[in-house]
Every structure is written in structure tokens, then in C-alpha cells.
Amino acid sequence: MVQFGPVGVLLLVGVVLVVLVYGLSAFLAVARPVVDAVAFGGGLPPVEHAFSRFHVRWYPVTMVFLAFDMEMLFMYPWTLVVTRVGAPAVIEMFLFLAILLAGVAYAWREGALRWT
């Protein structure tokens, strides 16, 4: 935990810096902020609010990603013990990855990685 000390201080420094830049700009800016400017779409005012139920075409990719990503949780600690545990650790991890890659290959064939 002690080693996170500098990181905590750095976080504070970073936040203070951003606040300082904003403060400096408030002091230097040629004019106060405009409020309620129309959103830009090419010059005509928007006819509808852009906030909407946004249909992402890649939602299957997110699901496959989340499943695959879980594995990273195990892989980071795994890197530390390969020398100690030896061949079984390597076999185990890459069998595990092979199973997941088979899942990815399946998803690819089904077109889940495309903008359907």
C-alpha cells in the first residue's frame, strides 16, 4: 500500500493542474461561456435531441469481449508463477486460451464480429 503513495499524490497534482488550467482560462478568456449553443451537424439546427436510444451494431462483440476479458484476471497472476509451477501452468493456460479462441472462431463464422 505504501508504494501507492506517490500515485495518490500524483492524482492530487493532476486534478489540481486541471483545475488550475480551468481557473487560468476563466481569468484569461476573452468572453464568458456561451450557453445553449445549437449542436453542429453541418449548419442547420438540429431537429431532434441527439440523446436517444443509440443502436450499436457491435453489441455481440461486447458480449464476446466481456467473456474473453474475464480471463485476463487470471492471466496477470499467472505470469508470475510460470517459472515456479513449470510446464503444467503453461499447458493449463494455453489449453484455456485455446478453448476461448475456439469460441472466437465460432463467433467470427457466425458473423458476430461484423456490423450486422
Binding site: 488550467v21 487560468l24 461561456p33
Partner: peptide, 13 residues
């Protein structure tokens, strides 16, 4: 950018 005016769009979050 430091002297530039900031802006907020309609109903922005």
C-alpha cells in the same frame, strides 16, 4: 485555446 470562449450546447450533459 486558453483565451477562447467556452460553449455549452443545448441540453448538454
Amino acid at each position: 485555446l486558453l483565451v477562447g470562449q467556452r460553449r455549452r450546447t443545448v441540453a448538454a450533459d
